[in-house]
Write a protein that binds this DNA or RNA. Sequence first.
DNA 1: CGGTATCCGCTGCGATACTG
DNA 2: CAGTATCGCAGCGGATACCG
Lengths: 156, 156
Amino acid sequence: MKGTGIPRKEGTFPIYRYLVDTKCDAGNWSVDAYLRGCASRTVLEALANKWTCLLIDALRHGPLRFGVLRRKLDGITQKSLTQTLRVMERDGIVIRTVYPTIPPRVEYELSDLGRSVAGLMEGVKRWSEEHVDEILTAREAYDLRAQEEPRPVPVA
Amino acid sequence: MKGTGIPRKEGTFPIYRYLVDTKCDAGNWSVDAYLRGCASRTVLEALANKWTCLLIDALRHGPLRFGVLRRKLDGITQKSLTQTLRVMERDGIVIRTVYPTIPPRVEYELSDLGRSVAGLMEGVKRWSEEHVDEILTAREAYDLRAQEEPRPVPVA
DNA sequence: CGGTATCCGCTGCGATACTG
DNA sequence: CAGTATCGCAGCGGATACCG
């Protein structure tokens, strides 16, 4: 697994467990800014993932079974879905419930923590709908430019 | 580059350019839900990345030079920084300005689009600060459980 | 300073097969 | 149904060298 056995690099600043991965440059960073930056990093490692975001959104209205999730997130493989859900469970975002029936039934639902982040996802979703077109337009324009003019290089 | 040459899978639904990658299951999805899901996916491909998020946050207060960004995002390699910035430029999130001086000076700043998403990042950051501890606690608890009891398997 | 070019190890992920 | 196990490859990210 990912979180076990934390290798500590030289020059790191092991005040908190989740800081050990980042070098401390006391000159440029206040301890406060340092903590803030690291909190963000930790969380981003957990959330900044396409499937994770889509899962949080998918589970927003209540528990869903594994198979339903797989169909809702069309395109995800069983392996990726299992993995992603496992990590989210470990991070306390989702709760996994096994019903000992035949055939087996496993439900996933957002925890309180998960629900508290679902709001952010809602924001991302709204922003997406409002701005996808701008992104796509920008891409086309960029690709067009790239074809014609050579890219401006930092030369005198 | 990533966006050029879009391979179209069988059974896809090429109404819009950004939909070609996803299968259409007209039974379960309304066209509206379909568009919404795809908008999110497109945007998540662009934003759901640790460095991208951190860069948007780093640039929130104005333009910064390449070297400054590299130091701010301590831990990123030059290659990754260049790559990430290039993708963000292509997506219209950041603007790259080359000043033909010696030594060369290249500044990156958020576009209007980029600034409009910076608000979301602010939210993520705030959430991070409030909830990192819960995530870390959940992880420790999970790892402890995993050591002791075997994982509940879906069996009758 | 701000890149590009190249090599390269690792692993993330898909595909496939099997199971309680 | 909801997984686990295994293989195999592409691609990402790091390290290094070089350039305008």
